Amino acid sequence: MESVRIDSWVWAARLAKTRSQATAACRAGHVRINDVAAKASQPVRVGDEVRVRLHGFDRIYRVTGLAIRRGSAAEAAKYFEDLTPPPLPRVERPADIIRDRGAGRPTKRERREIDRLRGRDTE
């Protein structure tokens, strides 16, 4: 076996829950092979780089094995190498600013201070 359909491989590698979801992801342009948008029937080979958009984030995988049928998670881990860079560290923000109840609307100066504390500084 030299190549496999990309939708079948995405499903067998457990990147998509169902085969139809894998096909829909290919149709929507969420799957790319070597930085080229992939159709569901496009073949994938060992060594190809596959980008899959999952839950709003791009994941990058290198194909290390080919599979047609879906197996266990341990078996599926043999089919790819995860090249996704680690996420950037989250910036700590101060807790929400709490104003006294009944204090009314913030003044222009107070609103600018609140925006500055929340990181929405426009200046």
Rank of each mutant, 00 (worst) to 15 (best):
A38P: 08
G29L: 05
R90K: 04
T84W: 01
V10L: 08
Y79N: 15
D48I: 14
R14S: 03
S41A: 13
V52F: 03
R116E: 08
E75F: 06
R53K: 03
R90P: 15
R105T: 14
Q21K: 13
R69S: 13
R62S: 08
T18R: 07
V4W: 06
H55P: 00
F80N: 11
D58I: 04
A28T: 14
R109T: 09
V4H: 10
R45H: 11
T122A: 02
L54N: 01
I98N: 10
W11V: 13
R19M: 06
L117V: 07
S3A: 08
A25L: 08
K108N: 12
R59F: 06
R51W: 06
A77S: 13
E110K: 15
V52P: 04
G119V: 01
S3Q: 08
R59M: 14
A16E: 06
V91Q: 06
K78S: 14
Q21M: 08
D96L: 10
P43K: 13
P87K: 15
P43N: 03
D35C: 14
V50A: 00
V46Y: 15
T18L: 15
R45W: 12
L54F: 15
G65T: 07
M1W: 09
R59P: 01
I97R: 09
I114R: 10
R120H: 13
A12Q: 11
V63C: 09
G102M: 11
G65R: 00
A67N: 07
K17T: 15
R53I: 00
R70V: 02
R19Y: 11
F57N: 15
L117C: 01
A103P: 00
A103G: 15
R5I: 07
V44C: 13
G29H: 04
R118C: 12
Y79M: 05
I98P: 00
I6Q: 11
V50W: 00
S20Y: 09
S20T: 15
A74C: 00
Q21N: 05
T107M: 08
V50D: 02
T122L: 06
E92G: 07
K108C: 04
R14K: 10
G71T: 07
I114N: 02
L83F: 12
H55V: 02
R70N: 15
R51P: 00
A73T: 08
A103C: 07
R59D: 05
V4K: 07
D96V: 06
A76V: 03
A74W: 06
E49I: 05
R69C: 01
R120Q: 01
D121W: 02
R109V: 03
W11C: 04
G71L: 10
R53G: 00
T23L: 05
I97L: 10
A77V: 01
T122I: 14
L88K: 11
A24I: 13
T64R: 05
C26T: 10
I68S: 15
A38D: 02
K108T: 10
T64Q: 09
T18F: 04
L54M: 11
P85N: 04
K39E: 01
P89S: 12
W11A: 03
L88N: 11
A76E: 07
S72G: 14
